[in-house]
């Protein structure tokens, strides 16, 4: 699992897409933190909101485009290896569970590193690190990673997961917020399956997001263990 995770982690730092995502994250963190005071003077905010104003840019970015970024980088993490048959080298050497969880930890560590650097950058202006918001953002990214891995296991063609990654990345946040606030009883139950419902609360219910992510990862593992490579 460690070997797989290390390879996945390091490979994520290579390539133009990763570079662009890292730059967007860091620039958003930097400028939203730097100009947080401008926002504070323009809008009326509660004391709690004002306290977290420096992270609002990064939080908004991950809420709205996080799924798109994660899918953009990792939509083919599983199916490309199956499609190109390099997965045969892997499954004949280690367990499928180690491969899947190794890939998950590699991707997760990449995002953890990016977010940690972003929060450190923000802390320069905010003069503090808000671990609660950091954990919330991390739970959201964990959910997005697991959803991306699940799609990559479910769909065998990398080209299709790329397309689906873009569609889901754009629609999922809109749909997610809609089901949280809609009164339509036929769809409102879905809010319990999206991370937005748990993030909206200002308590530790966001930890449920980690459970949802874990369920998706277990489902992905069950499917992958039955899949032919």
């Amino acid at each position: 699992m460690y070997v797989m995770g290390k390879r996945e982690f390091l490979s994520l730092f290579k390539g133009v897409k990763s570079f662009i995502v890292i730059v967007i994250l860091l620039l958003t963190s930097y400028y939203s933190a730097k100009f947080a005071n401008v926002l504070m003077s323009g809008i009326e905010l509660s004391a709690k909101e004002a306290e977290n104003i420096h992270t609002v840019g990064l939080l908004g970015l991950i809420l709205l485009l996080g799924q798109l970024f994660v899918a953009g980088l990792s939509h083919d993490t599983m199916n490309r290896e199956i499609h190109e048959r390099t997965m045969r080298f892997l499954v004949t050497r280690t367990s499928r569970t180690s491969i899947l969880f190794g890939k998950f930890f590699g991707i997760w560590l990449f995002w953890f590193s990016c977010l940690a650097i972003s929060f450190i950058l923000i802390s320069i202006f905010a003069e503090r690190i808000d671990f609660f918001i950091f954990s919330q953002v991390l739970s959201l990214v964990t959910y997005q990673i697991c959803l991306t891995i699940l799609l990559s296991v479910l769909i065998s063609k990398p080209g299709f997961t790329m397309f689906l990654g873009i569609v889901v990345g754009l629609i999922f946040p809109i749909f997610g917020f809609w089901v949280v606030f809609t009164k339509n009883v036929w769809v409102s139950w879905m809010k319990f399956m999206t991370p937005f419902y748990y993030l909206e609360r200002e308590d530790y219910t966001f930890l449920v997001i980690f459970i949802l992510a874990g369920i998706m990862l277990v489902i992905a593992n069950l499917i992958f263990n039955r899949r032919e490579c």
Binding site: R85, T86, T94, S95, S98
Partner: peptide
């Protein structure tokens, strides 16, 4: 059984490798 995997070596019929 995954435990036996480290004791076997496999050259699959398809010669795809990691290009990078």
């Amino acid at each position: 059984n995954d435990d036996v995997k480290e004791r076997i070596g496999v050259m699959p019929d398809y010669s795809t490798l990691y290009g990078s």
